[in-house]
Design a protein around this nucleic acid. Structure first.
Length: 598
DNA sequence: GCCGTTTTCGGCCCGACTGTTTTCAGTCG
């Protein structure tokens, strides 16, 4: 029997395309490197396996993807079918350079990596480090003692780098630095830009834009902050530093008249900016970080609104700036009215000391109330999660009584009884239906058997969603950023089932989860499925995640307030849950019976 | 190599900073 070949992942294909780009760049080939690089980015950002696209639609399916034409589609197919790319292997034989590793060193690109290989035979970071220490790099034309020292320093940072960090980790630091910049003398505006402003789930570096009377003093102050462990460069208007948190921070100072253009420019995304510049170019204009120019005349730049307006576009919220159709929508005036920060009125997933949370029901309710919420659901873990002290049926009912008792003392705030029940591998639940029927909010979630096949995992989740008592699918894919892959769900099938069964899909706002992720939120919104944005807090201090991280993900998924059940008043929220719907239809049927003449 | 309101050829985003190049290439964002 023929053994099935291990399937080639999108990440591996993206890596190969990126490597192709670098080898081509070494030879000074024009434009092709960028074509490969762009294709690599598209592949890395796909939410479906290339192998699946190839299986279903072949090369035509691959070519339908943006930035992938006949040439690259053919190479992707070669990779998928044979696990190899002969052209790349030939390039590697010709120059056995670990170019992907080497260009991770700050200050080294394809060209200079090649120069080092030609002169000294350097193939990887280890050999680069040795050559730097031996003082041989400074002998290479185009290099000197200074670049040798910088490279040596950078090598250490490559080893110690932790890569992209969680939005939830970096956001507080970014806000703190933003506030400190704003407080410096002579600073008129200071703003966080970059992927933080767009609300991306992970962050590669911090970007700040400032307007100041004496920019050079600001870049100086920035580069000498106590958190700075290394200064890559600093000029009159720009500084790039490494922070002790293990992340780089970039500061740009511009004039007031350029603030909006700079904010657009440094907020990105890169792909969004490229589209904006193309629009400018076609209109005979030029867009850069200083403004939108007709010839030498600046026609916009002071505010973001001016810049977009002058390009014939409505202002686009930063969370949408990913070149996923937002520019067309802005041109045609059909951008969604996104859910606002602060719009949540309740939180439907909260753990307490009845399972693995650290605070009591009353403490969590009090903290939620302080944040301005009107209601919460207490959803402690259940039987299968014994490790967390998960409740059985009797304990859930006991907790519901305790909640009722607390509610009697509360005015203007309501605690809903609930549970986070476990979805077993076969899709059954770990709590009996008759008890679930007595709770206000039932969330169901996967906590085990994460590596099922796509078919099995999808069947499992759909079975749970069809349970009439399951109101919400909690953290639907169970991924943990940087630690655990998502369960291999057919997300389109899950979204369809959500619409059919009235099951709400959750955006779990725990920094490591952010699950559903933005692209899946968009699918849910497009299909008309309902969402919940929950903190999944296990401690009072974590309740704020929903309004920061959770809303950011929802906005990135083009969600509006009306798509989110817990952005509604309590009565409306409850009516949108399954039991509420069932109750409503029961009432309607009863009313029809009454109207009918006897 | 990709793409198309300049559509099957001829374009392809733009600027700051660094180092060593005495006029600019490479790298980065």
């Amino acid at each position: 029997m023929a053994r099935r070949r291990r399937s080639v992942s999108n990440a591996e294909v993206a890596r190969a395309l990126r490597e192709m780009a670098l080898f081509l760049e070494m030879d000074g080939v024009a434009f092709k490197p960028r074509a490969y690089e762009k294709a690599a980015q598209v592949v890395a950002g796909l939410d479906r396996p290339l192998a699946q696209i190839d299986e279903e639609a072949g090369a035509a399916g691959l070519e339908a993807l943006p930035e992938i034409g006949a040439g690259i589609a053919e190479r992707i197919e070669e990779l998928l079918h044979s696990g190899r790319l002969q052209e790349l292997e030939a390039l590697r034989r010709e120059r056995p350079i670990d170019v992907l590793e080497l260009i991770a060193v700050e200050g080294l690109g394809a060209k200079r990596a090649l120069a080092l290989y030609d002169a000294l035979g350097i193939r990887n970071v280890r050999e680069l480090e040795r050559a730097c220490r031996a003082g041989r790099v400074r002998e290479v034309p185009g290099f000197g003692a200074k670049s040798e020292a910088r490279l040596l320093e950078s090598v250490g940072f490559v080893a110690g780098s932790r890569g992209r960090q969680l939005l939830g980790t970096v956001l507080p630091l970014a806000r703190e630095l933003e506030a400190r910049l704003a407080a410096l003398p002579g600073v008129r505006h200071a703003a966080v830009a970059g992927s933080i402003r767009r609300g991306r789930e992970t962050i590669g570096d911090l970007d700040f834009v400032v307007v100041a009377r004496e920019p050079a003093r600001i870049t100086e102050a920035f580069a000498t902050m106590p958190e700075v462990v290394r200064v890559y460069g600093r000029g009159e208007t720009k500084a790039l530093v490494r922070l002790e948190a293990g992340i780089d921070a970039d500061l740009r100072a511009v004039h007031e008249a350029s603030f909006g253009a700079a904010l657009v420019y440094f907020t990105g995304s890169k792909a969004h900016n490229v589209e904006l510049r193309r629009i400018a170019q076609k209109a005979g204009l030029k867009l850069n970080e200083y403004g939108l120019f007709r010839g030498r005349e600046r026609i916009a730049g002071r505010s973001e609104e001016d810049v977009y307006d002058a390009l014939g576009l409505a202002w686009i919220a930063p969370e949408l700036r990913e070149a996923r159709g937002e520019i067309e929508a802005a041109r045609e005036g059909r951008l969604p009215r996104l859910i606002e920060y602060g719009a949540l009125r309740g939180d439907l997933q909260i753990q307490t000391d009845w399972s693995d949370g650290s605070a009591s029901i009353e403490e969590m309710a009090g903290a939620a109330r302080k944040l301005g919420l009107e209601y919460i659901a207490i959803t402690d873990h259940t039987r299968d999660l014994a490790m967390t002290g998960g409740s059985d049926e009797a304990r859930l009912l006991e907790q519901a009584q305790e909640i009722a008792r607390i509610n009697r003392k509360l005015r203007g705030f309501r605690i809903l009884s609930g549970a986070e029940v476990n979805i077993r591998a076969d899709g059954s639940l770990d709590i009996a239906d008759d008890v679930l029927a007595q709770l206000d909010v039932v969330g169901a979630a996967i906590h085990s058997a994460f590596r099922q096949s796509r078919e099995d995992a999808t069947r499992r989740v759909l079975r749970a969603m069809r349970n009439p008592h399951v109101d919400i699918l909690f953290h639907p894919t169970a991924r943990l950023l940087g630690r655990r892959e998502p369960v291999a769900l057919d997300i389109d099938a899950v979204v369809r089932a959500a619409v059919e069964t009235g099951t709400v899909l959750e955006i779990d706002a725990q920094p490591e989860r952010l699950d559903l992720k933005d692209e899946f939120v968009r699918k849910a919104v497009d299909a008309g499925a309902k969402l919940a944005i929950d903190s999944d807090a296990h401690h009072p201090g974590q309740l704020g995640w929903a309004d920061t991280l959770g809303i950011a993900v929802a906005r990135r998924g083009w969600a509006r307030r009306e798509d989110v059940v817990n952005a509604q008043p309590l009565a409306d929220c409850r009516a949108l849950l399954k039991d509420g719907r069932a109750a409503r239809s029961r009432r309607k049927r009863a009313a029809r019976r009454r109207r009918r003449p006897a």
